[in-house]
Every structure is written in C-alpha cells, then in structure tokens.
C-alpha cells in the first residue's frame, strides 16, 4: 500500500476564472474535486504544501487525503496546470476515488543496477523511451513506481513492457503491442570509435624474410 499524503484545503464558493484569480490573489491555489458519484467540490490549497507534494516523483500515482473542514476526501491528482515560466501551480484537478475501484494512472519508471549493465559500462546511454507508464490499477494498490532492472543489458538492447515486472492487479493500458520502455543506445563517442575501428586498414602481413644473396 503506497503512502497517502495529507493536504489541507478550504472550500471556495464561485466557479470561473475571475473567482480562480481572486483565490490566487489571496495566495492560494484553486482546485476542484470531482467524480465518485458526488457533485464537484471547489477548494483552494496552501501552495507550499502542494509544491512539496508536487516535488515528489510520481505525484500523479499518489493517493492524497484532502481535509476540508474536518472531512477527509480520498483523491487522486489528475491534472496540474503550471505557470509556463515559474512552474508555480495554477490549478489542480483531483479525482475522488471510491474504494475497490480501478483507475488509470501514470506511474513513473525508475531504473536500477546501472553498474551491472555492460552496455552502460562501455559508454552506452540509457535512452528512456517512457518516463511514465499508464497502468490500469486498483485504487488500493497503485504502485508508486515501476522498477526496471538494467543488469546484463548491452548496447543495442531494449527493455519492453513484457520484460518488466508489474505489481499484482496492475496492467498496462496499452495491451495490443509490446512497447519499449527504454533502450541502451551507443553514445556518439562509442559510435565514432566503432566507425574508426571499421575504417582502419587491416594489419599488414609480416614481411617475408628476404632471400639471402648467394
């Protein structure tokens, strides 16, 4: 069971960009809780608490408990709008989750055993094709990350989703193809070395001993 982060929130009354801007002028971040067969609920959050939660890897795969006037709502972050320059949160969408339901979540991928990969050891680059994988998972067992083991991978090898161990109950939403999660690519330095080795002339044969003048 992953960790549940607690956030405190205040209710807000009005919808729309004017009301949202007024909330931001007060130094708070407007947000909404929707879904779960209940009416949408407008709230505002404390920006520092929210930023701390956002800085954690896998924010969108983390269950949150938003406390509003003593009532706790179990939610899953769905979208965070960020300021284009400062990356400060402008608005957050939360999905109210019901126990024993399934959700689609973007789970971050983390890589282990870099030092046990001969390809990386020889100067290859870990080319991360998917930093996050969308999973269909039960609410109570959303993985906080997907671990990919790099042991034994050579330059040119790829890790596909079929080779990744997923937690029980979770399955990728893309099921029609075995998509690539990461690959070990040759760096430009390694490619140049290989090209130079291929272009070099073969070693000259040993010159035969000159016949001695009789």
């Amino acid at each position: 069971m992953p960790e549940i982060i607690a956030l405190s929130a205040l209710p807000r009354a009005r919808v729309g960009k004017g009301a949202a801007r007024a909330t931001r002028r007060e130094g708070r971040v407007p947000a909404i809780i929707y879904g779960g067969n209940d009416a949408p609920f407008l709230i505002s959050l404390e920006p520092r608490e929210l930023k701390r939660a956002l800085a954690r890897p896998g924010f969108f795969a983390t269950l949150l408990e938003v406390a509003i006037d003593g009532v706790r709502h179990r939610v899953l972050p769905r979208e965070v709008q960020l300021h284009p320059v400062s990356d400060a949160p402008l608005h957050v969408d939360f999905l109210r989750v019901l126990p024993e339901s399934r959700v689609r979540v973007q789970v971050p991928v983390s890589f282990i055993n870099h030092d046990r990969s001969p390809g990386l050891h020889r100067g290859g680059i870990l080319n991360v094709v998917r930093h996050e994988i969308e999973l269909d998972a039960p609410v109570e067992a959303i993985p906080d990350r997907i671990v990919v083991d790099l042991s034994g991978l050579e330059i040119g090898d790829s890790v596909h989703i079929s080779a990744v161990a997923l937690p029980p109950g979770s399955r990728p939403t893309i099921r029609e193809r075995d998509f690539t999660v990461a690959s070990i690519a040759a760096s430009s330095a390694v490619r140049e070395e290989a090209a130079a080795a291929a272009a070099a002339p073969p070693p000259a044969p040993e010159p035969e001993a000159a016949p001695s003048a009789a």
């Binding site: 956002l54 800085a55 954690r56 890897p57 896998g58 924010f59 990356d87 971050p108 983390s110 930093h131």
Partner: peptide, 10 residues
C-alpha cells in the same frame, strides 16, 4: 535550469 520532479535528488 529545470528538471523532472525528484530527478535531481535521484
């Protein structure tokens, strides 16, 4: 300079 969430720590 920007980085993915949690990337700099890792």
């Amino acid at each position: 300079f920007v980085s993915r969430a949690g990337e700099e720590v890792a």
